[in-house]
Design a binder for these strands. Structure first.
Lengths: 170, 170
DNA sequence: CCAATGTCAGGTTGACTGATATGC
DNA sequence: CGCATATCAGTCTACCTGACATTG
């Protein structure tokens, strides 16, 4: 997603859009901030996916691998993965399909509840996570232009936004 | 994109991911902020696309319509639209195709340079922009949980990020 | 001849809906 | 029986690449 660079403009397009918006409508402040967020997302995703490209991983699949890597036994029910990663159940099935095809995870039966399927990270999966992480980290995930203070402030505001959206209780 | 609500967790998943990340790797601050940004994008897009659904518009097409609406003569070359909206040329062609099929824009020849094609917003396009904007604005574009101060701070930091990414000169 | 503009064909991704099989 | 879990088929959007015709 959004890997390509495009020619720069002579002015901030969002600032210009807001100016025109304010001449006609209300809510220019929320419009401009939301649009800036969407564009910032494009920048971050571009940087991250560019770093992951040599490993044939998308960010979604990398996230899934990292999640499994962080789990105590290296495996989680697919449903739980969807909840943690905030993605659709069929997207989890799809991501695990692709990771499994590359030998990075394997599907395992949960003996106590035979409805659930566990995804378990393999040794090769762990190796790839380490290598991919070593490639991503130096890019600063596309936010390296910000200093520690700005990072913390940005994180605080976005956390408030996520909480208000009901991502977790309390 | 990302319209569905998913069950809430008992904790902040990104905070938890960062805790585990910091135990193993470096750059947990940038990882957490970038991940929060990606999730915030999902929230904003979900809210906006939900509001646009009754008008059979995606955010990309709505943005294109607004841009044309803001232009002096109600028309712009497709290439210029791509630059302003920061999207791929073929994405512009696709968006204009769909808007044209619904009678919201029409393609017009530029007499001075017959290579370029102009997209021109129609009267019906203008009506739809007004109606869709009236529907979106009250949602606060998914960022209504933030106060004026937080909005301004968020916008300032994201603008720095966009500038550093080379979105425009100076 | 080269560069710019837009279009088209073809491939990838992720997300969604709705239906289904299985098991609690 | 209802409910939960995962999968599958099919659809949609947006993005990308590479090729192409047209025009400057």
């Amino acid at each position: 997603m959004a890997l390509q660079q495009r020619p720069p403009l002579a002015f901030d397009p969002i600032r210009e859009a807001r100016r025109q918006w304010d001449e006609r409508w209300t809510g220019g402040d929320t419009m401009a901030t939301a649009t800036a967020l969407i564009r910032a997302h494009q920048i971050v995703m571009g940087e991250v996916e560019r770093a992951l490209e040599p490993f044939d991983l998308t960010f979604a699949r990398y996230e899934a691998l990292v999640l499994l890597c962080f789990s105590r036994k290296g495996r989680l029910p697919l449903g739980k993965m969807g909840t943690r990663l905030q993605v659709h159940p069929t997207s989890v099935t799809n991501a695990v399909d692709r990771l499994e095809a590359k030998g990075l995870v394997r599907r395992v039966q949960e003996p106590r509840d035979r409805r659930t399927v566990l995804a378990e990270i393999t040794a090769e999966g762990r190796r790839l996570v380490e290598a991919a992480t070593a490639a991503i980290t130096p890019t600063g995930f596309g936010v390296s232009a910000l200093d520690a203070d700005e990072l913390a402030t940005l994180d605080r505001i976005l956390t408030k936004l996520r909480l208000a959206a009901g991502d977790w209780e309390q």
